[in-house]
Design a binder for these strands. Sequence first.
RNA 1: GCCUGCAUAGCUCAGUAGGUAGAGCAACUGACUUGUAAUCAGUAGGUCGUUGGUUCGAUUCCGACUGCAGGCUCCA
Length: 643
Amino acid sequence: MSIAITLPDGAIKRYETAVTGLEIAESIASGLRRNAVAVRVNGEQWDLSRPIEIDAEVAIITRDTEEGLEVLRHDAAHVMAEAVKELYPETQVTIGPAIENGFYYDFARDDAFTPEDLEAIEGRMKEIVKRNEEITREVWQRDQAIEYFNGIGEVYKAEIIAEFPADETITVYRQGEFLDLCRGPHLPSTGVLRDGFKLTKLAGAYWRGDPNNAQLQRIYGTAWSDKKQLKAYLRRMEEAEKRDHRKLGKALDLFHIQDEAPGSVFWHPKGWAIYTAVQNYMAAQQYKHGYQEIKTPVLVDISLWERSGHASKFGDDMFTLSSDERDYAVKPMNCPCHVQVFNQGLKSYRDLPLRLAEFGSCHRNEMSGALHGIMRVRSFVQDDAHIFCTEDQIQSEVKLFIDFLHEVYRDFGFEEIIYKLSTRPEQRVGEDADWDRAEQALEQALNDNGLDWELQPGEGAFYGPKVEFSLKDCIGRVWQCGTIQVDFSMPGRLDAEYVAEDGSKQVPVMLHRAILGSIERFLGILIEQHAGALPAWLAPQQVMVATIVTDANDYAEQVQAALHNAGIRAEVDLRNEKISYKVREHSLQKIPAILCIGQREAEQGTVAVRRFGSKQQSVVPLEQFIDEFSEEIESKQQFVVGE
RNA sequence: GCCUGCAUAGCUCAGUAGGUAGAGCAACUGACUUGUAAUCAGUAGGUCGUUGGUUCGAUUCCGACUGCAGGCUCCA
């Protein structure tokens, strides 16, 4: 018998007997063996120590690759579980996967883990790594495994295994005294994990993600190929946290939130300047793209929400109030109101597609634990719009919308967009045939645009499937911003109709769509994306005119007036302070341009320009600066480092 | 809503093994007229989130509440 092993470079190695990944790695280079964490055999991940007995394509997985890191992180979870079992034997283990940048493990235990426990666990993990326990794979019968785990009091593990088919064999991994159900692969021994890991946080998590189940204790950690990588990651996170919109919102005096209005934002002058800049931009864009802007009431009788179906599904999350013996809801969304506008007067097929847009002020009683800065609030404004169209027009409208969204995101400097298609949920309204067509229309539009999208089965809205467009915040959390949703149900429920070509009355299809989503959330992400240093067209203060001597005050005010005349947001700083003091302060405020004005500038009609992010100055005539800066605003240029 | 943690001056934070608190910056006053990331001196500023309890005495210990943070769940 001879086994042919094909390596990634096409080379073929022959072995007389079964060979392990570790042996193959060793035979290629000792460095490769040192960095090996697992092996890919015919596309499947295997343990390095598992004998390969047939001809196979084999690739060694090393610790510095994404795939290798995933193996390391998964092992870190197991080592953590072993440490927890050693320190707190009464604890039950449940599941512990690798995740982006790290891993977690969910434990069941009556006493809560404390931050001090975390240190102890991490210390024990290091010991386990030092012990370098061999990790071995064993194949068990399902029933044998259930019996074993129940026998040692690990009922969660037994429950997981009990869901496998009765005749299925399962794999368990043994390291020291610790035995865990696992598909693998795992490292040959705990020492291979090395020291690039750290436990980071403690959290509650429901068993199987269901709030009706017991709440487990989840310990998160991060793991990297070595300590250097770990430190680099921790430094990156530290840097990223400086971009947090809540910190910048305070430091740059943009907004605040206070106890009396949880989940609602108090916008300060500078924050509101950004807000209006964004909203005005969107209004102009929507007009350009064939939308008509409307405004609908915030307080609407509850009966409308009962007819639309929102009251029964979201009643608990709606703010309601009574007055003059009528019950009202503070609108949580705009669509039923937009249908009311559509319903005024008789509509013809010639009116379609009809695109109604609104900066709709919405309130939702979000759970207290869900609130997050200005990203997740109870009071927000959507750049909402509803497109009333025929079924034939869905495809092209969705395509137009995606192009529109891309144009907007590009202007704001967003390159990385996450696309998701969410399909029919269990609790829904409408016919399955309609859902079929709606889902296909969205999928088709995504594919026509050549986008790389992810399917989220069952995550659609109750009235229709949706495409979500998400962006990441400073530490990589994903937030949904844009969306487009196909709705075959609500127009009918709310009696919308139009006269078709043949004179018959038809129910239009409604597309719900938003590009920014919640303006509040979008601004939070925008602030983080730019670390507070917004490009000139969005900066709340675009130019600061700072005097060097009081003799230049008059000229500085003339400069400010000239900037105002050119439509530039400019402030003037006449304080009796040194110019370096003013430069420092306005630089910390991340103002795009500081114009320093001294005796010379006053005499020559020039300005000394210092752009944010640069230590250079250039002295130019005032008119030239205004022209160039206006052009920069006009073209929505991204952040520019000055000459 | 659930789990864990946190709440001290306008901001960032220190502190009290239980005896009603301190720094830097900001603010205010004065001096300095200044050329590109902090001029100097002085003054003022806090019911230590709210509320019960233990105690001779609570900002500190315990409980409740509110809010915030990180997760979980939810997200029309």
